[in-house]
Design a protein around this nucleic acid. Sequence first.
DNA 1: CGGACTCGGAATGCATGCATCTTAACGGCC
DNA 2: GGCCGTTAAGATGCATGCATTCCGAGTCCG
Lengths: 228, 228
Amino acid sequence: MAQNLSAGSLKRTSLRDQVLDLVRQSLVSGEIRPGDIYSASALAARLGVSSSPVREAMLTLVNEGLMEPVRNRGYRAVPMSEHDLDEVFSMRLLLEVPGTLWAAERATPEDLAALRAVADEIEAAAGAGDVVAFLDADRRFHAGLLRLCGNRRLVDTVLSLRDQTRLYGLDALARHGTLDASAREHHAMLDAVAAGDTGRLEEAVRHHLRHTRSDWAQPEDDAPSGKR
Amino acid sequence: MAQNLSAGSLKRTSLRDQVLDLVRQSLVSGEIRPGDIYSASALAARLGVSSSPVREAMLTLVNEGLMEPVRNRGYRAVPMSEHDLDEVFSMRLLLEVPGTLWAAERATPEDLAALRAVADEIEAAAGAGDVVAFLDADRRFHAGLLRLCGNRRLVDTVLSLRDQTRLYGLDALARHGTLDASAREHHAMLDAVAAGDTGRLEEAVRHHLRHTRSDWAQPEDDAPSGKR
DNA sequence: CGGACTCGGAATGCATGCATCTTAACGGCC
DNA sequence: GGCCGTTAAGATGCATGCATTCCGAGTCCG
């Protein structure tokens, strides 16, 4: 709360951060497709800014594993293989399960109430089929819940892992219509937290993550193995 | 092995990476002290390069959590509080224990032999009191062992966490003379891997990490609380 | 007709320059 | 003597320009 006041109010966003968010959104919306190469100078020209902040934003994305530099061609949006998804899923399992359990120990009624509101948002977005709003609220929910564990690095790492996967299954999520089922799981998790039932909470988190993993399994595979 | 061949051979290091490594080394050697502010332009002048690559290297360090930008003053080497150390320690526990167990399942005799050699290096460095060589070999050992688990993201994350802590306890390690004890634990871990004793391996890893955490507990505190 | 070579276009990476902003020291005023 | 306003120095952040390097199309030769 106080953090929002001190950090978010008078922070003029640098061009670098604006470009960074914009590229991230482009990844989410599918405008930037995995495997394609994009040049910093071309992006800069399209955005009407210099190549310096664009370059720095791309380097940040490289550090986060979302892009990779190609020698003198540009930056390539890294496609996620099944093995990559397994890696992310495994790490999220290792971090989110204990993190959520720790968070449950420290959650106050006020925290739970705030999360209930976000969970309602998630269900509303799922009911409306608004995938963008769903992902945004879902991210805020898990970030808000995990943050209670008190380990900032853990939260940041999990969010970074989330950002690596959320980008590649958007349409699949919408097609399968599994948003509603996934949305309801959030309230179930909060119920377990409120009840102090750590066993049920752990199973809920595991189930939620498994859900995520199986839903985002890529149905199509236009790049056969061996192509690198 | 093959990775080294493909990656390290014909890679001309960019100025950015050179600066990055140099600043990291300066952090390890203590030339850059936590809490102090350093300007990219001053560093660029000292190194005889432009501020562009220095700036980009600093931004990378910011992303890694080693530095933080100060509005129009420069970049500050972030000091590690006890809570920060706890955060890193907790995450390493969550990631390294399962990761090492997975690695043990996949370790081949050749892998073990290579790691034995590194473990010998560690003991030699510990016996000679060469802290820099110790840390380097120690890092290679844990990276090499963890890498066998097959989860590249997990390895990278753990190494990043390592880099956040290794910088702040150098002299303490040397003073307490605990290098030898820590060095011997590596062979014990390999013994457990070779024996297929997962329970003993898990306990060895936990013990090793606890060792690390307690050794690096800051004995001195020249910045009393409330100073900021 | 197929393959190798050359040349042009383009992108990165770095250097340089400038506008804006913050901090800190200095001088004046109460 | 202490406090406040002013000013100047320095840093970031962005724009611009240039050298180097790589990919690919076109062309020439076998």
